Simulated scan of single mutants.
Amino acid sequence: MVEKNIIKMKAEILKALAHPTRVRILANLREGEKCVCEIIDNLAIEQSNISQHLAVLKKLDLVTFKKDGLKVIYKVKHPQIFQILDLLDNILLEQAENTISILRGLQKPRKQK
């Protein structure tokens, strides 16, 4: 039963990472903590949309926040999340390299002049 719960928890985190806006928010926070207003400016997305996605990340304990006057400042709670994103980058790069290799095999030799 415990293993089933852990698998469900992992799936929830992966579901959170499955949305492009949330990945963009995390990438934006990679540089350090940011005010919601900065995230909105950097991503050019409406405040209500950003807030919804931050709520998902907050619910899963992936980001934390603090208030500074009227500003709400967010930061990534577990920097290991960037390792996951980096691994995904590596997978995408490997897939692209494999595709290029296959496509090069399709090239016909060109006649020399």
Score class of each variant (00 low, 15 high):
Glu46His: 15
Pro20Glu: 14
Ala11Phe: 04
Lys34Met: 15
Leu14Lys: 05
Asn28Met: 07
Glu97Cys: 03
Lys59Thr: 13
Gly69Cys: 10
Gln95Phe: 08
Asn42Val: 01
Gly69Met: 05
Leu14His: 06
Asp61Phe: 13
Leu17Asp: 05
Leu43Met: 07
Glu97Ala: 07
Glu3Leu: 15
His53Met: 08
Ile102Pro: 00
Thr64Leu: 12
Val56Leu: 14
Ile6Lys: 09
His78Gly: 00
Leu92Arg: 06
Val36Leu: 12
Asn90Ile: 11
Leu88Asp: 08
Asn42Phe: 03
Lys66Val: 13
Arg24Lys: 14
Asp86Lys: 14
Ile81Thr: 02
Cys37Ile: 14
Glu94Asn: 05
Ile81Asn: 01
Ile50Cys: 00
Leu17His: 09
Gln95Trp: 04
Ile7Trp: 06
Gln52Val: 03
Gln52Met: 12
Arg30Met: 13
Ile45Val: 12
Ser48Arg: 15
Leu43Ala: 07
Lys75Phe: 11
Asp68Ser: 11
Ala11Arg: 12
Leu57Asn: 06
Gln95Met: 13
Val23Pro: 01
Pro109Thr: 15
Leu29Lys: 04
Glu38Tyr: 01
Leu60Thr: 03
Val63Met: 01
Arg104Met: 13
Val63Tyr: 00
Lys71Arg: 08
Asp41Met: 11
Asp86Arg: 05
Arg104Phe: 08
Asp61Val: 08
Ala18Met: 09
Glu94Val: 09
Asp68Tyr: 02
Gly32Leu: 07
Lys66Thr: 13
Ile25Met: 03
Val72Gln: 10
Met9Phe: 04
